[in-house]
């Protein structure tokens, strides 16, 4: 049996002021899966992702990435992960190319390897004409492309995307969808959070819905979205959200 790409067991995260963001969350993502991780704002999606990637410290529970403990063997585990953050957490005075290049460097990629990888990503995400502009000069969509390129620079085995298409235009969304399907076809595992249910329905094979820090529904896309009303109805039923609220997103 293959080692899962991601195995979370009884994860709990309590912030300093006592706010329980994730509560006894268990989740398994098989290698090669395209996994949708859904939930309303504040449900615990980003916190879970932060615990997986080292941005947040889990209070208890365990996280394994391809069988490597994400806390004890954090260096080896992180080598396998690429993270596209929801926020633009970059040095705003650096250029897009610098941002991606530095990330490749942190992952130990040699200069020649970085150059060819960055050239490819700049072309793929149509960043070439903008690569020497400082990040703060870029439009929202271009900023998002830089964040995506940064997440992909180390060609990760597990790619985690935290709302990658929030606020981007249709063109980029389509470029990204094509690219994600392509790398998933090559065997890369992808964990995607999104408020766009049609995006999840289009791309993902397995889905988990989280609410108030707990997994409230998990299964294949067909199991969850196959019932009358589709994914939206299933989502509303387990999160208790209002239909208008979801439609508005």
């Amino acid at each position: 049996m293959l080692t899962p790409a991601l195995k979370i067991t009884n994860l709990r995260k309590v912030y300093r002021r006592g706010n329980v963001a994730v509560d006894d969350l268990s989740l398994t993502v098989e290698e090669g899966d395209f996994f949708g991780f859904l939930g309303p704002n504040g449900a615990g999606k980003s916190t879970t992702i932060h615990c997986i990637t080292g941005i947040a410290e889990p209070t208890s529970g365990s996280i394994e990435i391809f069988g490597l403990d994400a806390v004890k063997n954090y260096r080896e585990a992180r080598r396998l992960v690429g993270l596209c953050t929801q926020e633009f957490n970059v040095d705003p005075f650096a250029t897009g190319r610098q941002i991606v290049d530095w990330m490749g460097g942190y992952f130990g990629m040699r200069a020649a390897e970085r150059k060819s990888r960055i050239d490819y990503l700049m072309e793929r995400f149509e960043l070439g004409p903008h690569e020497k502009k400082s990040f703060r000069e870029l439009s929202g969509g271009l900023k998002r492309r830089v964040i995506l390129a940064r997440a992909l620079v180390n060609d990760p085995k597990l790619l985690i995307l935290d709302e990658p298409t929030a606020g981007v235009d249709v063109e980029l969304r389509r470029i990204l969808w094509r690219y994600l399907q392509e790398i998933n076809g090559d065997g890369r595992t992808i964990l995607l959070t999104s408020h766009y249910l049609e995006e999840v329905e289009r791309l993902c094979r397995d889905i988990a819905i989280v609410n108030k820090g707990k997994i409230v529904r998990q299964g294949t896309k067909d199991e969850i979205a196959g019932a009358p009303g589709g994914l939206e109805e299933a989502y509303l039923a387990v999160t208790g959200a209002q239909a208008e609220h979801v439609a508005g997103q």
Binding site: T53, G54, I55, Y74, R75, E76, R78, R79, V81, L83, T85, N89, V90, W102, M103, Y106, F107, G108, R150
Partner: peptide
Amino acid sequence: EEILVSPL
């Protein structure tokens, strides 16, 4: 966070 998610 760029440093925190890296294998450093």
